[in-house]
Structures are given as C-alpha cells and as structure tokens.
C-alpha cells in the first residue's frame, strides 16, 4: 500500500463517530460596518486612512506622500498620470525596486481593519508585498462589520490567490518591540472614496 492509502485507512479506522457541524450563528450587528471603527482599528495597527472627498484631492495627497521619481506602479488606469500602468514583466523579481504600488480592494472589515484583495486587482501576486509602500483604494460603502460577513461576501468565488491585508508588514520578534516594515511594505495608506 502506498502512504496515502495507509494514512487514509488508519484514519478511517480511528476517527470517532460523526458529530454534526454547528449551526452557524446569525450575523450579529449591522449589515454595514462602521467607517469609524474601521478607521480606528486600522490606524491603531499602523495603517493610515484618508477620506479625500474627490479623486483630484486624492491624487494631490498621494503626490504629497511620495514626491520624487522613484518607481510607482498601479493596476488602475485612473492613476496613469501618477504611476506606471503599462508595466509588464517576465519574472516577479523585476518588481524589486517598486517604491509605491496603487491598487484597489474589494472591501474592508471594520472589526480588524483588513482589506480583501484578489489576484486580478494585483496583476502580479507579489505586488502588494514587494513594494515599499502600498496604497489601497476602497469605496466607502464597501465596509463590512466582521469576518463572518466578509466570507458571506466572498462566497464561492474563485480567485487563484486572495489575501486580507491589515496594516503594514510588521514584526515584534526582537524583545517584543514593534517594528513596521518587516519584509513587506513599510507603510499602508487606505483611501476611502464615495
């Protein structure tokens, strides 16, 4: 017998009598999450949240945050005047010098400040991780209250790769002192638009 069969037969022999899956508790609280809680939580874990009012103000804010000629890329044609939209690569490591990446997020979650992003929004999976600074765009109405709602929104969609991002990359491995920018972005900026 191959290992697979041996393992499976041992499990079959040993697994206890079947128990039921729990009845899933009803969704608690509001259908839509609170903008205020989302902002508070995300700020507390090191993210920056902006409500620019309109697109032009937002662009000015981004220019203000990242002056200079460093490499900026985006997957949103909206920002073609700010960042490179036409980038194509042979290997993901070619993105190693990206300073700023601007991409969209599907929705945010108030209870933990996380934003759900899928591969189609990144173009290359490594984009939101390899950049030095990450800018995410989110529609204000797309804030859910908790993870239960988040998964009911995700449903059975297929995405290849998807991730919740909650704040900048961080570590506290050296004597529990919090340091932002472990391996991923050193800062996260979330712009909320109407």
């Amino acid at each position: 017998m191959k290992s697979r069969e041996k393992i499976l037969s041992r499990i079959l022999e040993h697994q206890p009598e079947s128990t039921a899956l729990p009845f899933s508790p009803e969704i608690q609280g509001n259908e839509t999450g609170s903008l205020q809680i989302f902002t508070e939580v995300l700020t507390k874990i090191g993210g920056h949240v902006y409500q620019p009012g309109n697109l032009n103000i937002m662009k000015d804010q981004i220019r203000g945050l990242f002056p200079g000629k460093s490499r900026k890329i985006t997957t949103l044609s909206l920002f073609s005047d700010l960042a490179d939209t036409g980038w194509t690569i042979q290997s993901p490591s070619e993105l190693k010098d990206v300073e700023v990446a601007i991409i969209g997020a599907h929705f945010g979650v108030a209870e933990n400040g996380a934003l759900w992003i899928t591969e189609d929004q990144m173009k290359q999976r490594v984009v939101p991780f390899i950049c030095q600074h990450l800018v995410l765009l989110l529609e204000k109405k797309e804030i859910l209250s908790d993870m239960k709602q988040a998964y009911s929104r995700i449903g059975d969609s297929t995405y290849g790769f998807g991730t919740f991002i909650s704040g900048p990359s961080k570590t506290a491995d050296i004597e529990q002192s919090l340091v932002l920018g472990a391996h991923g972005p050193k800062s996260l900026h979330v712009f909320l638009l109407d």
Binding site: I45, T158, G160, F161, T163, I165, S166, K170, G184
Partner: peptide, 17 residues
Amino acid sequence: ATGQPITTYSSHFQKPR
C-alpha cells in the same frame, strides 16, 4: 495568539501562479 485583531496577511492560495 498576540491580541491583534488579525494577522497582517491572511493569504488564500487556491491555484498556483
């Protein structure tokens, strides 16, 4: 684990790149 509301990254690998 640490009292954080969630880890910074919760990555879902469904298919290879």
